[in-house]
Nucleic acid binder design. Structure first.
Lengths: 108, 108
DNA sequence: AATATATGTCGTATGTTTGCAACATAATTC
DNA sequence: GAATTATGTTGCAAACATACGACATATATT
């Protein structure tokens, strides 16, 4: 086996990398952005906003849900997806801390 | 062709997604972190710090360089990699703005 | 100029992500 | 209970990412 050595790294680095991967696709950023600025968080409305097939948008939603960046609540036939503020805050802090640490004003 | 629709999204989203992809591997975060906290920015020293082969570390360095998050200057036989503060600042701002936008205290 | 040292590039194996059509399910309405 | 509506799941193909050994290059030292 010649694959995946992510677990050989610092736990913090692994965690940030995981969130970064979620944010590494514009569709997922677009979904989060849309959820933040509207109150209509119905799956179908999200799909209409994203220039991808229903299937693909659904998959991106599942990834965001798995990472706990969003929640999904069944409401009759429809499903309401919302931003998970708690995880989002954690994420904001992690990235904030990272960028603070790796900002360097001068080099050798 | 059934692939890659990233260009169908908002330019800002594409840009953040690109930086997020760079940060989506712990080795690259470890490299940036190491460069920030030490003055020894020689390629060989970085390689010794990362639990991956020289080849693989070199590839991660190339990716960071391509994204302009680091610079690489030849110094005799050695190469000195340094954090590109300008790009890093831009990156910090982009993510800061994103997280500020998608932080929502309540949902439907 | 031969040798040693530092580093990059190529080729390749394998795992992961992206995207979608087709099918499945589950609540609602007629 | 049949049709409709909203949504998730499966399976597949193409593209991309990860990892590394082997080879290439380029400076420094003897």
């Amino acid at each position: 086996m010649t694959y995946k050595k992510t677990q050989d790294f610092d736990k913090d680095f692994q965690e940030i990398a995981t969130y970064a991967r979620i944010l590494s696709h514009p569709a997922r950023i677009a979904i989060l952005s849309y959820l933040a600025k509207t109150n209509s968080c119905i799956s179908g409305d999200i799909t209409n906003e994203i220039p991808l097939s229903r299937t693909t948008v659904s998959q991106h939603l599942q990834e965001l849900k798995k990472a706990e960046l969003i929640t999904g609540e069944i409401d009759g036939v429809k499903i309401c997806y919302c931003i998970n503020s708690q995880t989002m805050k954690k994420c904001t802090d992690l990235f904030g801390k990272l960028f603070k640490n790796i900002t360097k004003t001068k080099c050798c």
